[in-house]
Design a protein around this nucleic acid. Structure first.
Length: 401
RNA sequence: GGAGGUGUGGCCGAGUGGUUUAUGGCGCUAGUCUUGAAAACUAGUUAGGGCGCAAGCUCUUCACAGGUUCGAAUCCUGUCGCCUCCGCCA
């Protein structure tokens, strides 16, 4: 439930925030309905009290009379609640103050790390992977269609090495590990905001369960309707399923954008006053991982209009892709403040009082994309691929040829 | 998939239409006693809202959603979860 009091008291701020986000929400109507709802709720509760009193006194006549009136008012209340909820569904999280205005092109580059290595005629990851017999795109297309692929041989080992490496990093930072369902029910899916604007991205099964697009969804849902201790930090491996509707023509080749890939995701539940600090903490971990893998990247703060429904602030890490001579997103870290917590009803106790937590999520490693980036950056002139030192302990080799 | 059972507060567990504002116990919190602790005793303790400076008043909550009734944890219908057995299965 939205905090109508807060909205009413900060109408200008909400108006401005929604505009920055590019959301078309009738905020005045929302506030008006919210007020009406609160008023009617008072009336209904008073009637309920009267009815309870009549029942206790075994006053059958009075009970009947009040009951009739109550029924009418309750019906009205239900209708109002439904309208309100429908309208509320469209209200995104507001961007934080330091998030720049604008859309997809207006992200603010916060810094770069690592120099792209000079590679003579760099091969793309498809050419490299096919030649080394570690990637089969046609195989994926044959059994499932476009945007599917097989990893083979050392690439499979590399995936497990990356996962183990990342889990070790996160374990040392005190993250708890989760390995959970990759099919979620509607309630769980909706809490994260994935059935709103992003509904077309999600696969639905004939049993009304949804395939997760990221384990962020299951980690959030894990604590739905609970009061928990904060901070709580999880790392979860999962396969991720995405329909990629509306991305026709984008990255059609290779394994940058696919319907299915594996990922280790971080998720934090924290006290509101700590969420900005937590955001920095998660981004720092992502940077540590990319640095250990010796991949040049830049750090970008997304503009307000480019944020997801749930996010108040998102920082992407974009890794260098030699064959495209540009940076591409491989990591994304969002502070969702209390937006998901409100929808999912996740609370914590502050001085005995119950408050909504803040939630944050960040990519630890997204395998498909990261393999492409790793291969391309560490390719050698003879077409072989060098394994970065950080991964060697997890593999029995230091080169793929 | 079939048959049977079951769902009550942080946990265990009573409760088959109105003194149940959910018995009792465990746990937890505070107090008394104690040098300190334990034990004992006393009190508090499901959770989420609304109004109020506060004291307090009040609504909702016994898996979920409907229904019957002046009144439902209790009766009826549907759904879901869990358990046991059978079937199928990696």
């Amino acid at each position: 439930m939205l905090d109508f009091k807060a909205i009413t008291n900060n109408l200008d701020e909400w108006d401005r925030g929604l505009k920055r986000k590019g959301a078309k929400v009738d905020i005045d109507k929302l506030v008006q309905l919210g007020g009406e709802y609160a008023k009617l709720l008072q009336t209904v509760e008073t009637l309920r009290a009267d009815k309870n009193a009549a029942a206790k006194a075994k006053d059958i006549e009075a009970g009947k009379k009040i009951g009739k009136d109550l029924e009418k008012q309750e019906k009205e209340l239900d209708e109002l609640a439904e309208k309100l909820e429908k309208l509320s569904e469209e209200v995104p999280n507001l961007p934080l103050a330091d998030v720049p205005d604008g859309g997809e092109e207006d992200g603010k580059v916060l810094g770069q790390n690592g120099k792209p290595v000079e590679i003579k005629n760099p091969k793309d990851h498809i050419t490299l992977g096919s030649a080394l017999n570690i990637l089969d795109i046609e195989g994926g297309a044959k059994v499932s269609g476009a945007r599917f692929y097989f990893l083979k041989n050392q690439a499979v080992q590399l995936e497990f090495a990356l996962v183990n490496f990342v889990l070790e990093v996160l374990g040392k930072k005190g993250f708890e590990f989760l390995l959970g369902p990759q099919l979620l029910n509607e309630k769980a899916m909706n809490a994260g905001g994935y059935l709103g604007k992003a509904k077309d991205e999600v696969y639905k099964t004939q049993d009304d369960l949804y395939l997760i697009g990221t384990s962020e969804q299951s980690m959030l849902a894990y604590h739905l309707d609970e009061t928990i201790e904060v901070p709580k930090r999880y790392a979860s491996f999962s396969t991720c399923f995405r329909r990629e509707a509306g991305s026709y023509g984008k990255d059609v080749k290779g394994i940058i954008r696919t319907h299915q890939f594996d990922k280790v995701e971080m998720f934090s539940f924290v006290a509101p006053e700590n969420s900005e600090k937590e955001h920095e903490f998660l981004v720092a971990i992502e940077e540590e991982i990319l640095q250990a893998l010796e991949i040049p990247y830049q750090k970008v703060m997304l503009a307000a209009g480019d944020l997801s429904m749930a996010s108040a602030k998102t920082i992407d890490l974009e890794s260098w892709i030699p064959s495209q001579k540009r940076y591409r997103e491989t990591h994304s870290c969002s502070n969702c403040t209390d937006w998901q917590a409100r929808r999912g009803n996740v609370r914590y106790k502050k001085d005995g009082k119950s408050e909504f937590v803040h939630t944050l999520n960040g990519t630890a490693i997204a395998i498909g994309r990261l393999l492409a980036v790793l291969w391309e950056n560490h390719q050698q002139e003879d077409g072989s691929i060098r394994i970065p030192k950080a991964l060697e302990p997890y593999l029995g080799f230091n080169e793929i040829k």
